[in-house]
Design a protein around this nucleic acid. Sequence first.
DNA 1: ACCTGAACACCGTTCAAGT
DNA 2: ACCTGAACACCGTTCAAGT
Lengths: 216, 216
Amino acid sequence: MPSSQNSRRRSREDVADTALRLLDEYGLPDLTMRHIADALGVRPSALYWHFPNKQALLAAVSERIIAPVLDTRVDTLPPRDALIALGSGLRERLLAYRDGAELVSSSLALGLAESPVRPRLAAVARRAGISADLSRIAADTVTHFVVGYVFHEQQRQQADSLGLLAPREGLTPAAAVAAHDDALGGDFRAALLMIVDGFDASTGHDSAAPPRLCEG
Amino acid sequence: MPSSQNSRRRSREDVADTALRLLDEYGLPDLTMRHIADALGVRPSALYWHFPNKQALLAAVSERIIAPVLDTRVDTLPPRDALIALGSGLRERLLAYRDGAELVSSSLALGLAESPVRPRLAAVARRAGISADLSRIAADTVTHFVVGYVFHEQQRQQADSLGLLAPREGLTPAAAVAAHDDALGGDFRAALLMIVDGFDASTGHDSAAPPRLCEG
DNA sequence: ACCTGAACACCGTTCAAGT
DNA sequence: ACCTGAACACCGTTCAAGT
């Protein structure tokens, strides 16, 4: 019942909260230990009581970004729709913060953060009758693809907003950006559909499997 | 005929060559302008005559890493095998240098380097009867997947070599690392097959397409 | 338990000036 | 054309010392 036990954890979470706010406001390159400390009204060295180093702090921020994807309920959906919903849900979370995909990509790659989507993707694949091994691979494939795709998407957004947008005839810059974003979202769904449908087609493949693509 | 015209370009290439060597030897975090200048026997500020900034220098290094994938001949292969060969060829190039995937991923995302594999992937897809729009998406999907996958793969390799390897019963550490690498290579092929087979299954899909995955 | 003060060993980049 | 010298404005991290 005493609150003394919670005071330490609240501090740690305050640091992550502030870092997430600064990320969205100023971007990953400006998310320095010094800026985070300034925003907290504290000295940079104080952060090292809460986190062993900067990567660990960034991992905590990563987990905050992707955690809400667990709110997406997919139990009642058919497997194909469930995989699309999880992939799109992850994309939405990454798009919700500036440089979200780059930050999460790095934390996942370093093994410092865990994607909550991965086990759920694998569970859906197993529910669809795919083997345990292939389900694990499928989950990694979708995760890799979504993170990589949104990484690229956000870099383009940033390049566009810096005025590097190639002008298109008959469109205001703002309209061109919007059209571009819509096209990217459509492309994302199409590509995700390809991958998901590939799970079905590849079930039980071996190295001597016949070619499945139609011939030119 | 006089060589004076070439002296400038050779200098620029010398810088990129040296940077590539240092990347493989010491890794991306230690690939600083100061270290590159030291290795060339020159002052850091001298590099800014050859490249406008560090990102541009890194983009030149990226293009050196992926350029040799053009040596992979796929004209005579059936489309499915051609896509697998291009994807595996790109993976090999990224694995050939330390932190290769991370460097190339960043340069591609920033739009500072172009993947020579992308147009070739799209050409193979078109040859297989896929529409131009979907072929472009397919090429991006494979490129994103390969780069993201190898990025993760190399981070794991580095984590393992730093002794963070979870010990497995009855294996020497070296044997465990080798087994792990083999498993990753096998997983890569399986995942790439999934994606490639998805191209076939998704051809001509629309938003009202029926679910294709078998029900659980 | 939580933070300060002060230092250490670095970064990328600019720019006048040299040759 | 190509490079130096010197500076500017930063980094992440450590650690004794404070409270």
